[in-house]
């Protein structure tokens, strides 16, 4: 039994001339909540479709729950709950009837417990009151919940959730987050794709970032965060002196900040913002074991050195690269759709 819930090697999908997924090597540890990030059109959904056997890979291999896909499809999929590219239902059937129908398609699901399991799943996503209502009359948020309920009909080892909070109101989003946390607490591996960074930051233990069909970064959330450079920000009326001190203790001051910045947001007249990189830019997942800040002076040492040399420190901050900055660095195109 592998300790990876999902493992791919060189997984590739080509649609005619266009390469949708380009040789990705995913490694999703069991028990993790894996955030699969990427701008729209970066190949997230195609990857998920390949993992679930809906789309055949052009090249490469995929193992899900330790079994080769799509060969082991019939054995693996009953243990996988999924929400793929939005929920979908027969509009002329009630919510409960839709769930019962999908459940009937699962050979491993017992018909005798079907009614109870459908009711429980509906209850878990807060849709019990609308169970008899036609799915066509559901709001987008209700459909999203029904889609989640479908993923919960059976005990699952792996949940693959494609944009699970899409279309939900803030309250619904919070509920889905707490649902996902409760699955993770039960030991279920959750593979959640999203383009919402805040969501991934709050939920996930691991992240993978897709850009234009490639997996450009993968690792734990901490590694991912650390991999971006932290910066020291000093607000001072003595920028030149500050820069000299920072350089002496081994920090690289930013060229961009070489000219005194009129700190419009700050209170003091003539204050300048001096910034310096605190740690190296590292690729996440790679040399993660060693502490990236080990050879760097501690923050308080920086302040002490500044003060010792008579630099008037009016503001000091350590800024971690936000996940969003890191994301934009990696994908290069922010949130634009890739043509």
């Amino acid at each position: 039994m592998s300790d990876l819930a999902i493992q791919t090697h060189g997984l590739t999908k080509r649609f005619r001339a266009q390469v949708a997924v380009d040789g990705i090597d995913l490694a999703v540890p069991r028990g993790s909540v894996f955030g699969f990030l990427g701008p729209n059109g970066s190949g997230k959904t195609t990857t998920i479709r390949m993992l679930l056997g809906l789309v055949g890979a052009t090249a490469g291999t995929a193992r899900v729950l330790g079994t080769d896909m799509p060969k082991g499809l019939d054995d693996v999929l009953p243990r996988v709950g999924a929400l793929v590219e939005g929920p979908a239902f027969a509009p002329f059937l009630s919510g409960a009837a839709n769930l019962a129908r999908f459940d009937a398609a699962d050979r491993h699901a017992s018909p005798s417990t079907r009614g109870r399991r459908v009711a429980e799943a509906l209850d878990r996503v807060g849709l019990s009151h609308a169970a008899r209502k036609k799915a066509g009359a559901y709001s987008l948020g209700m459909k999203q919940r029904l889609g989640l309920a479908n993923a919960l009909l059976m005990p699952r080892d792996l949940l693959v959730l494609d944009e699970p909070t899409n279309g939900l109101d803030p309250q619904g989003t919070r509920e889905v987050r707490s649902l996902i946390r409760s699955f993770a607490a039960d030991g279920t591996t959750v593979f959640v794709s999203s383009h919402l960074l805040a969501e991934v930051e709050q939920l996930c233990t691991h992240v993978g970032v897709m850009s234009a069909g490639r997996l450009v970064a993968q690792g734990t959330l901490d590694e991912f965060r650390r991999s971006g450079a932290s910066r020291v920000e000093v607000l001072t009326p003595d920028p030149d002196a500050a820069r000299a001190v920072l350089a002496r203790i081994g920090l690289v001051t930013d060229a961009a900040a070489a000219a005194p910045v009129e700190a419009a947001a700050s209170a003091g007249d003539g204050d300048a913002l001096v910034t310096a990189a605190l740690s190296d830019d590292r690729a996440p997942g790679g040399r993660a074991a060693d502490d990236p800040a080990a050879d760097q002076p501690a923050a308080e040492a920086v302040v002490a050195a500044l003060v010792r040399d008579g630099v008037r420190v009016r503001g000091f901050a350590i800024r971690r690269t936000s996940l969003e900055q890191r994301f934009v660095e990696l994908t290069g195109e922010g949130f634009d759709v890739v043509g």
Partner: peptide, 8 residues
């Protein structure tokens, strides 16, 4: 897609 990943 949902019928197929059930898996039907």
């Amino acid at each position: 897609r949902y019928l197929l990943i059930a898996p039907a």
